[in-house]
Design a binder for these strands. Structure first.
Length: 264
DNA sequence: AAGAATTGCAACCGCGGGGAA
DNA sequence: TTTCCCCGCGGTTGCAATTCT
């Protein structure tokens, strides 16, 4: 079976969309829905192929699209899901409402993959670039620092599912979030705005405890002494993840201290 | 200040799945 | 069962913006 190239017909426009074309496509879909994508451009009066219209709508014009930089939580989810699912961008996008597979794919290739590689090789992470444009905002925005939840570096996610899966304490996600205080005292504000450098905090593991030192961090953020925390994995179920998976967080408890895990 | 190099992202391409005829 | 068509997915590309020298 020979398939004709999408835009073989002469006269069909390719390349960047103009605001006028966007307006035509949006108002047509808002009035009539998209129905048959192939027929849509003709009906709407656009010199584009249906595939191009679909892509423009899905990736850019849809009203529920969330624009702007990814939050560190979203990036964590992407990293975690990528580890579980691989390059199944649409499946990952399903876990991030308002984000498209294309956007996630781009973020992975431009930020997260490099970050993980740098993390593995103990290199500094390069300064994030300022986002070029944002349709919902006329001002340029700086990427958020991507140091995520305290000392839980991206490479630590690899141990999420390898952790103590047989532990009995299954708790809810909101409970985990309310337990932020038991993590080591390194949060997003730890890092100066212009750089993302979670590698300046080093973690050394001996049996199930982590020794955390941040002697390379900026002076105002250094601990007075090296502190030791116990690592513990806690799992949770989240209805957002409808494919039956459980997720695991590593939390850190100061040596000598104990906490009670919240009940269901 | 200007040109080169790098980066980020929108858009394109081709393939495969699934459903209708 | 086979053929055709549409849609969605993942990989890749092109180019504008930004940074570097």
């Amino acid at each position: 079976m020979v398939r004709a190239p999408c835009c073989e017909k002469m006269g069909l426009k390719k390349g960047p969309w103009t605001p006028e074309e966007d307006q035509i496509l949006m108002s047509y879909i808002q009035k009539h829905g998209h129905g048959n994508w192939r027929a849509l451009p003709k009906l709407a009066g656009l010199l584009r192929c249906g595939k191009s219209c679909r892509l423009r709508w899905i990736n850019y014009l849809r009203p529920d699209i969330k624009r702007g930089n990814f939050s560190s939580e979203e990036e964590e989810i992407i990293i975690k899901m990528h580890e579980l699912l691989g390059n199944r961008w649409s499946a990952i996008a399903a876990k991030l409402p308002g984000r498209t597979d294309n956007e996630i794919k781009n973020v992975w290739h431009t930020h997260l993959k490099k970050r993980l590689m740098n993390s593995d090789t103990n290199k500094r992470v390069s300064k994030p670039r300022i986002k070029r444009s944002d349709s919902n905002s006329s001002t340029l925005t700086q990427s958020e620092p991507t140091s995520s939840s305290g000392c839980t570096t991206s490479s630590d996610f690899s141990s999420f599912s390898e952790g103590t899966k047989n532990m009995d304490n299954m708790i809810k996600r909101e409970d985990i979030e309310s337990m932020e205080t038991v993590k080591p005292p390194i949060d997003e504000s730890f890092w100066p705005q212009e750089t993302v450098d979670y590698e300046s905090s080093t973690m050394m593991q001996s049996s199930n405890s982590w020794t955390i030192s941040n002697e390379l961090a900026p002076p105002q953020y250094q601990f007075n002494s090296v502190e030791t925390f116990q690592q513990q994995s806690v799992g949770y179920n989240d209805s957002k993840f409808d494919d039956g998976m459980d997720f695991w967080y590593d939390i850190f408890i100061k040596s000598g201290e104990s906490i009670e895990l919240p009940e269901f």
